[in-house]
């Protein structure tokens, strides 16, 4: 399989030459259709990595390629759920989920003619995350976890071929979270888009991903890659599989080690 996303020796510095060095020497390869997870200590540059790959932020050094072409600006084949849901407060949930269709070609020119189809799709997505009855509510009437779920729907509505999720389940309780793992896995198994998931939850990473990248403390770079070859479709039973537990343990130890090292430094 070919590489869909590659990062070569990428560095990112915020705010000029004396600013914060968020990433340095980051290398990473993700194959087409693969589900990748990125884990690492807080502040190590995971969200920055996502911004680089969406083309929102140019790298200070190094090169980023998506689908064979260098990234020079935002790509409409990506869908992104940001860490902060940033739903538009003047729109209802349904209108918020429809937003990408008003921007991305060719959908933006077909809004009128395919309205029913689009609406049905948005409603379907809201239903899969359990928000069907809230479609007419405004975001500020919803809990943080509900907003995150709507955010996930918004990132999926235009069928992206590269999906980026920045801690999409951070504000959810353990049960809803595990339920949504299943939902996300189902969607991914059906559509087979390349996915990059940033998370703090190591079980979540191992449950969902084919490959887990572990990042060092800031300035972040990828220091370990774990292949998860557990069979699909995974269920909650999988999380009790000794192999699953073993991978989670390995990653946990690595991150603990990183934290020790960065404290000592």
């Amino acid at each position: 399989m070919e590489d869909f996303v590659t990062l070569d020796n990428v560095a990112l510095r915020y705010g000029g030459a004396k600013g914060t060095l968020a990433l340095s020497g980051a290398d990473l390869k993700i194959r087409k259709g693969e589900f990748a997870a990125v884990v690492g200590p807080s502040g190590c540059g995971k969200s920055s990595l996502m911004k680089l790959m969406t083309g929102l932020q140019p790298p200070t050094e190094g090169a980023i390629h998506v689908d064979g072409a260098p990234v020079s600006g935002p790509l409409s084949i990506t869908g992104m759920a940001f860490q902060n849901p940033s739903l538009l407060p003047w729109r209802t949930l349904l209108q918020n989920v429809m937003l990408p269709l008003e921007i991305v070609r060719p959908h933006r020119h077909q809004l009128a003619s395919r309205k029913e189809e689009y609406l049905a799709k948005a409603r379907g997505l809201l239903k899969t995350v359990g928000l069907a009855e809230f479609e007419e509510k405004h975001p500020w009437m919803l809990s943080g976890g509900m907003q995150q779920r709507a955010n996930l729907c918004r990132s999926l509505i235009h069928d992206p071929s590269l999906l980026m999720l920045d801690e999409p389940f951070g504000a959810l309780d353990a049960f809803t979270r595990e339920e949504l793992w299943g939902v996300l896995q189902d969607i991914w198994l059906e559509k087979q888009f390349t996915t990059i998931l940033v998370t703090h939850d190591l079980r979540e990473a191992v449950f969902l991903a084919d490959v887990v990248f572990v990042m060092s403390a800031r300035p972040g770079r990828v220091i370990a890659t774990h292949r998860v070859d557990l069979p699909r479709k995974r269920t909650l039973e999988t999380t009790f599989d000794p192999k699953f537990i073993d991978i989670v343990h390995q990653i946990r130890n690595q991150i603990a080690q990183i934290r020790e090292d960065s404290k000592a430094a």
Partner: peptide, 20 residues
């Protein structure tokens, strides 16, 4: 952050003004 949501989809300056 709101602008990023649209920009990541390839929105133009005019889109940003109109939608946000």
């Amino acid at each position: 952050e709101m602008e990023d949501v649209l920009r990541s989809l390839g929105a133009s300056r005019l889109d940003l003004i109109r939608k946000i």
